[in-house]
């Protein structure tokens, strides 16, 4: 749907984007991650024609692709009420259907029907975000870009906004979710791109990224009885590169290079049986998206 190649942008000689490549396919819910000031908003603003690019290619699947954009802090007209604002946006995007019906519909989707007749200047930040999302959704966009939709919200507001995004994702909409709140991404995204030093450090499906970067083939064994004999037996498994005794819970074993999760698991089960050790539970340990993100943005992964 959208392919970006070699995108660059500098502000007063300071490079923000240094050859960014990005690929968004139809139906993707794309988590666009990166530290503050790394160029996420700049990229979004370039896609939405708000600021000019320096060099590079921004190619849409077809001409006239409709984009809905929610800026990080949407500045709305405080003297209008929610209904009037969305009506105005409907006229701006030359919505071809019935404006009143569509306004009512997007208000319903974003849960703002009850507050639609109140002036926007009296809205909370969460309500502003929801009206912003309603505006972005108005023209049934092919691509919906949400820039930090939950960053300034309290947990309740965040949950509400994420629920709206989750519902939209469920309808097959193509969404770019630009954020540094990783829980949000894990909840809805199927694809992730991590921006570092103005280039895309990692871009892949969420599951693939977790498998590729987060899978360090470790098994955590929780013991029913934490005895020195049990610890010695488990720590002595030769397929493990290292082991950590988690007193009093159990042991974490990290597989040697080239040893698969399955091989390590089999060896653990055999060792437990041979030594008559009763486990409380076994779990495969992987890096969380947050750990992967920190690893990528700090250059460790």
């Amino acid at each position: 749907m959208l392919h970006i190649k070699g995108l660059t942008k500098s502000y007063k000689g300071f490079p923000v984007l240094a050859g960014l490549n990005m690929n968004i396919e139809k139906g993707d819910v794309y988590g666009f991650l990166g530290t503050n000031g790394c160029g996420k908003t700049t990229t979004m603003n370039i896609i939405c024609n708000i600021i000019p690019k320096d060099y590079g290619e921004v190619a849409f699947e077809r001409e006239g692709l409709k984009i809905g954009y929610l800026p990080e802090a949407p500045a709305l007209y405080g003297y209008m009420n929610g209904y009037e604002y969305l009506d105005f946006i409907g006229a701006c995007c030359r919505y071809e259907g019935n404006l009143n019906a569509r306004t009512a519909e997007v208000l319903e989707i974003t849960g703002m029907t009850g507050s639609a007749k109140r002036l926007i200047k009296g809205y909370s930040r969460g309500m502003n975000q929801r009206i912003g999302i309603a505006a972005a959704l108005y023209n049934n966009p092919d691509l919906l870009i949400l820039d930090e939709p939950t960053s300034a919200l309290d947990p309740e507001g965040r949950a509400e906004v994420m629920e709206i995004i989750r519902k939209l994702a469920g309808t097959g909409s193509t969404i770019v979710l630009c954020t540094h709140i990783l829980n949000d991404v894990e909840r809805v995204a199927n694809k992730v791109g991590i921006l570092r030093n103005g280039v895309m450090a990692v871009e892949s499906g969420l599951r693939e990224i977790k498998e590729k970067l987060g899978g360090n083939n470790a098994i955590n064994i929780r013991l029913r009885e934490y005895t020195p004999e049990a610890i010695t037996a488990l720590c002595g498994i030769d397929l493990a590169a290292r082991s950590e005794a988690n007193d009093p819970g159990g042991v974490t074993l990290y597989a040697k290079q080239g040893v698969s999760e399955k091989e390590l698991y089999n060896k653990v089960v055999i060792t437990l049986a041979e030594n008559n050790i009763l486990p409380e539970g076994l779990e495969f340990k992987r890096l969380t998206l947050e750990q992967i993100y920190i690893g990528v943005t700090t250059g460790q992964l």
Partner: peptide, 17 residues
């Protein structure tokens, strides 16, 4: 200055309108 024109413009508001 307040960037309140950003959403209408990115929605398609023409300069003439």
């Amino acid at each position: 200055k307040k960037r309140s024109i950003m959403i209408p413009q990115s929605s398609g508001l023409s300069a003439f309108s």
